[in-house]
Design a protein around this nucleic acid. Structure first.
Lengths: 358, 358
DNA sequence: ATGAAAGCGCTAACAA
DNA sequence: TTGTTAGCGCTTTCAT
């Protein structure tokens, strides 16, 4: 029954594929009608539409994306700009995004741009022109210039982890997250509380978490000591080094707030290496909700990461469909999850066991 | 100096962008010459080429991908088909792939297809036609049918984690990995060794790891006991449940080979919950080289995952450039990394401490 | 070495 | 409701 018009050889670029012409001919209509019918546009006789669909299915026709894109000016694809793809936070966000994009049949293009410091191949901005209809930017720390370039593309954009005036964004309340984690340590009875933060020139999100820490401290009448703050660069190793530094202080903290789970993991390793028991000797609380935080028994303020990806993607699609849609700044809730890494102080407060290796 | 031909308004689809025509006019040549010059094709006067380049740069011209694709039939993009994005192995592989693709200015399209069991939206095969010039398939466990569909697209393809006759592939020697991990436990003096494998209907890779386990056992004159094998589904939780099951055996193992680090992590948690010390009470060795394996002190056979992604991408690109390039089956080396989770048996062998919670 | 011209396969007015 | 007709912006013979 199927009248195969074009030959389909197995390999090579010269494989002739079925075009809208073939479908039009086989269905006895014009290509315009096929186009309308298949895309579900109005003003098509239901019968005609059905017939076209049948024929298209029989011929196993698939629209040529390049042709469709060229003619329509739409690409049906969204780019995600992310510093990393192989770290928990980012891969989780990506997964959430991928989820909703795939549901809606939108292509997902990934651009991994590395740490804000690093300079990757081309600035993505030139690589994006004409390729995508929308952008999702994942926590590009205060690299304002580059962000401005991206926005100059004039595409609908969603931010994750940062807010941006006039664009969609999905964030957690970082101030609150920092405050909650710190307050939890305070409530446990700790008064000598250190902090492992990210990097010197911080992102807004990092600054907010620090602010939350200070607010909680101030609220308890405590003064954060600069000597009890260290940078962990959001990595396990960085966290370990930061904790090691804190332990070498004359008067080490009895508790530490780490801005990310990875850094908390590193901190815990440092403790173990010093023969200090996490929790009972020195308490740790962090932010993230990393899958392995449960395993490592780390108290953390969980952020719904996959969900954040989903939400950002949905908001973006809404904006892409309807240019008039107002950009939203969405703040999603976090949850404190208390585990074994945070318990009341045991020792005679301040001076924990020091340098007792293994 | 720059003679801006087309207006560039900030937003909207009606933004007129600079086309090859503009560049041609400004440079006083034909569009064909511009095309050749910019793409580095031969038969262009060096002077002309330089002038065209200048003009293009001044005008900030960027080729329209859709137009170029339609005219040339090439898309300059590669799709990665992966069951997951947000798990260590997969996100690491993706990162490696992204790396080399970005270097070569090739777009990366990601398709997350979920567990082999699950059925995602559209079969990717129809969604891929005309969109990409090459495919990277990441460990799609024996879902042979679907793979056949993909290959029917007639595109150069690289496999990661699986071999496929006639295609590029990057794998580790799974038999060897399983054997090495098991042999290590044997060398430690263990004789009662269990195994946590993936799932019932296994992938080739899983089968090979199991084979390695059996080979090592046989080589030591040991008989693998079916009651000491459990499925962990490659997840932390699955690993925990599997270990729990093993512990409830009348005669639990003194050592366990887990096919993935995640499952080993779960197994360790199970041990902890039972008040059993990993390493000294029951030894664990696994395969992967997960970043956190160091933290958790897990002995593992490391596979160079990011590198595997890079290699697969490079092989694919080579094949895309030169159709004649022979498909290669690349096997990359693994490394046993011994850590605290595997030490010689302590107790009077077989019966470890049981059910002593916390 | 360069240019002219014919598409690539589709979409989007505009007619009918 | 459907068809006709221009393109979309490039690449690629084929001439020159």
């Amino acid at each position: 029954m199927a009248l195969q018009h074009a030959a389909r050889t197995a390999y090579g670029k010269d494989r002739m594929s079925i075009t809208i012409r073939d479908v039009a001919d086989a269905a006895g209509v014009s290509t315009a009608t096929v186009s309308r019918a298949l895309r579900g546009l109005p003003h098509v006789d239901p019968e005609t539409r059905e017939r076209v669909r049948q024929v298209a299915a029989e011929l196993d026709y698939v629209v040529s994306p390049s042709a469709s894109r060229l003619a329509s000016g739409r690409t049906g694809t969204v780019a995600v700009i992310t510093p990393f793809i192989d770290r928990w936070f980012f891969s989780s966000v990506l997964s959430g995004i991928s989820d909703v994009l795939q549901e809606r049949d939108v292509d997902l293009l990934v651009f991994e741009v590395g740490d804000p410091g690093t300079n990757p191949g081309l600035p993505p901005e030139r690589r994006l022109r004409g390729r995508v209809d929308g952008l999702i930017v994942v926590t590009l720390p205060t690299d304002a210039m580059r962000v401005a370039d991206l926005l100059a593309l004039g595409l609908p954009t969603s931010f994750i982890g940062t807010t941006w005036e006039g664009s969609n964004s999905v964030t957690i309340d970082d101030v609150s997250a920092g405050r909650v984690a710190t307050q939890h340590l305070i409530n446990l009875g700790h008064r000598h509380i250190g902090m492992i933060s990210g990097r010197p020139r911080a992102s807004a999100s990092q600054a907010h978490r620090a602010q939350g820490y200070r607010e909680a401290m101030a609220g308890a009448g405590l003064t954060p000591e600069p000597s009890l703050e260290a940078y962990g660069y959001f990595t396990v190793q960085g966290g370990e080094e930061a904790m090691t530094a804190l332990l070498s202080q004359p008067n080490p903290p009895t508790a530490v707030f780490a801005m990310s789970d990875d850094m908390a993991f590193g901190a815990i390793r440092a403790l173990q290496r010093h023969g200090i028991r996490p929790g009972s000797d020195i308490a740790i609380a962090s932010i993230d909700g990393h899958e392995l935080a449960e395993l490592l028994d780390v108290t953390t303020v969980r952020q719904p990461v996959v969900e954040m990806g989903r939400t950002a993607a949905e908001a973006l699609l809404a904006r892409m469909m309807d240019e008039a849609a107002k950009p939203e700044e969405m703040m999603v809730p976090t949850t404190l999850i208390v585990r074994g890494s945070s318990v009341p102080p045991e020792r005679t407060s301040t001076a924990g066991p020091q340098g007792r290796p293994t």
